[in-house]
Design a protein around this nucleic acid. Structure first.
Lengths: 198, 198
DNA sequence: ATTTTTATGACGACTGGTCTATATAAAATA
DNA sequence: TATTTTATATAGACCAGTCGTCATAAAAAT
């Protein structure tokens, strides 16, 4: 019992250290990119000793990128699910999705859009393993959205096709919104997607 | 006369060195990102001595990024203009645009999409001057596209709005195409934009 | 008490961007 | 033509910072 308690506490501590690191990495990678963030910066940002990294991520920096992608896959996947559950129409679903990203943009002073796209552009061509993780992540999100589209009466093939199209438009809007420091592109994309997805 | 010739040759040589550097930087930044490409790599890729960089780009690496953005602004701007001139309908205009990017993707084994987006994500939040250049670049492209839309009978406000929407969809499609190493997202975006832009 | 797991930070080999000092070529002047 | 002045180009030193390793410490389990 005593041993059990300690075991779980220890394990939990280790887990929080690891997930704390991923959270910080997700934040910094988004703002500055993968290559521009050093391990030292990562550690000091979380008051963690440097050696910890190679305990939790034996393969080094690339391992962190993968963990970030997995984490984003889950988090945003959950966001999509919640947006779907809270919506009773296609329009409100799209609105809810856009709303989530808009909030992140504003709260981060337009430094944080999609946590994966920076990694995608920097690494997908260079690091096959990370590229695969990103590809899977994007596919997951699209599939979740498509599920919702189907729930609103769309046939499956069309749903997948339009989920991909919506994904592209959103992803592009996030880049533009960041460079312009404005929600306007996001708003317009929401409007046009609402119009088009029928 | 002799002196004149030498003067222009010298100047031209300097210009080619500089533009050679920008071209190489544009290529490498696209594939690996800004921070991941070192000045050493840039030089050796073009058989240029390292010291030259700070003659042509006194403010250092950031200056190179700005030159790349300006160059991309012109080159792709020209591409948009040509696509417009060669098209007699909205559909063929969009097809021509997509075609250009598709070619780049395939020829680079899906390593080169938009030469600016990587810089946008890495730097727009960190380096104000580069951010401004990127913002202007994007605005320029959208305005060129909107001009074409107007030429095909669209009213101006709608043209600007839809040019932005198209830009977002395309930009997103380029990211997805790179991660999937497939032209499919680009094809679908072309199809849906053709459908929607009326 | 001994072994296993978890955690740590100093260290090294190396690369990063930047800058100053120097060399080469062209123009200008005498 | 000879010589000075200017523009263009290059080389290499510099230090801060990079990632990754490893010998060890602390904690837990046996």
């Amino acid at each position: 019992m005593n041993t059990n308690e300690n075991a779980t506490r220890r394990k939990r501590k280790g887990e929080t250290t690891k997930s704390k690191l991923t959270a910080i990495a997700m934040d910094l990678f988004q703002r500055k990119g993968f290559a521009a963030v050093g391990l030292n910066e990562l550690c000091s940002a979380g008051d963690l000793p440097k050696g910890s990294i190679y305990y939790h991520f034996p393969k080094g920096k690339n391992d962190i990128a993968i963990a970030v992608v997995e984490q984003a896959k889950q988090e945003i996947g959950e966001g999509i699910r919640q947006a779907g559950a809270a919506s009773d129409s296609l329009d409100s679903f799209i609105a809810a999705l856009v709303q989530g990203f808009a909030q992140n943009l504003v709260q981060s002073d337009y430094e944080k859009g999609c946590p994966v796209s920076t990694l995608a552009l920097e690494l997908s061509a260079q690091e096959a393993e990370i590229g695969a993780a990103i590809s899977a992540c994007y596919a997951h999100w699209q599939s979740l959205a498509a599920d919702r589209f189907v729930a609103f009466g769309m046939d499956e093939q069309k749903a997948n096709d339009l989920a991909q199209f919506s994904f592209c438009a959103l992803e592009g809007a996030l880049i533009l919104a960041r460079t312009q420091k404005s929600l306007h592109p996001l708003d317009r994309v929401q409007h046009h997607l609402s119009n088009y997805l029928k």
